[in-house]
């Protein structure tokens, strides 16, 4: 606890730099500051941003080596491979979501800031999606092409991953918040998060599969959207509650 004042000041400084006094700041303004702070910090450490993407690419590469290099066979499993790889990559990235902020006391300052923690958690999760979910969705078409998907499937795959990763980030934020303060939490985080993420995997893989076959992806995409909306409304509440408990 000895180093807390210093880091707490830094965190408070980050919040106050753009807002003046904390009293007059609205939730939206505070959330925007948190978002800005997380993005700025992430771009100062670009190496960490690349890691989930590299992991995604490597996992995708494993399947042709393990199954068969024939594109016709790979095309059949391409949607599933993409989604399993995306799920694992987003799981890997979850470890960074709250860990550093819990370690240096920033989360404590957020909880004490007088702003609703739910809004701030939402901002943090949004930043996390912008930094991992969106890049994953952007490189997924490349991986899909390498697995034999036709170029016409690119918009569908992009859309399904862009929407699906929103839900994954939100569900993951609950798991990350619950495992705060547990040492070597990696396996436990997977055990908690993966069962809860299964609906996203099912609808996402279905949407990508339909896109590869050239059919309409509207139905599973709408269900993915519904999951994302449900996540937006409920997940920040749960992760804020979990963060508060971890600070008790």
């Amino acid at each position: 606890m000895a180093e807390l004042p210093h880091s707490a000041l830094a965190a408070a400084g980050g919040l106050e730099a753009g807002s003046g006094d904390a009293q007059g700041t609205t939730v939206l303004a505070a959330a925007r500051l948190v978002l800005q702070r997380d993005l700025t910090l992430a771009f100062r450490r670009r190496g960490q941003l690349i890691q989930p993407l590299a992991f995604f690419a490597i996992v995708t590469m494993l399947f042709p080596l393990a199954i068969s290099p024939e594109l016709a066979r790979l095309r059949e499993v391409a949607a599933g491979v993409l989604w399993v790889a995306a799920l694992l990559a987003s799981l890997l990235a979850l470890e960074f979501l709250f860990r550093d902020d819990a370690y240096d006391g920033t989360l404590e300052q957020y909880a004490l800031s007088g702003q609703p923690l739910t809004g701030l958690m939402f901002a943090k999760t949004a930043a996390h999606w912008l930094l991992t979910g969106l890049p994953l969705a952007l490189i997924a078409p490349l991986a899909a092409l390498s697995l034999g998907a036709p170029p016409a499937a690119i918009p569908g795959i992009l859309a399904s991953l862009a929407v699906g990763t929103v839900a994954l980030s939100l569900i993951g934020s609950i798991g990350a918040a619950l495992t705060l303060g547990i040492r070597r939490s990696g396996v436990l985080l997977a055990l908690l998060t993966l069962p809860l993420s299964l609906p996203v995997l099912i609808f996402g893989a279905r949407a990508s599969e339909l896109a590869i076959r050239g059919e309409s992806i509207v139905a599973p995409l709408e269900l993915l959207g519904a999951l994302a909306v449900l996540g937006v409304t409920l997940a920040p509440l749960a992760s804020a509650a979990a963060v508060r408990i971890s600070l008790e």
Binding site: I174, L178, L192, A241, A242, S246
Partner: peptide, 13 residues
Amino acid sequence: QRADRTSAVLAVV
């Protein structure tokens, strides 16, 4: 106490 409350959040989720 922390185990109780944390796992309770998980059960409700």
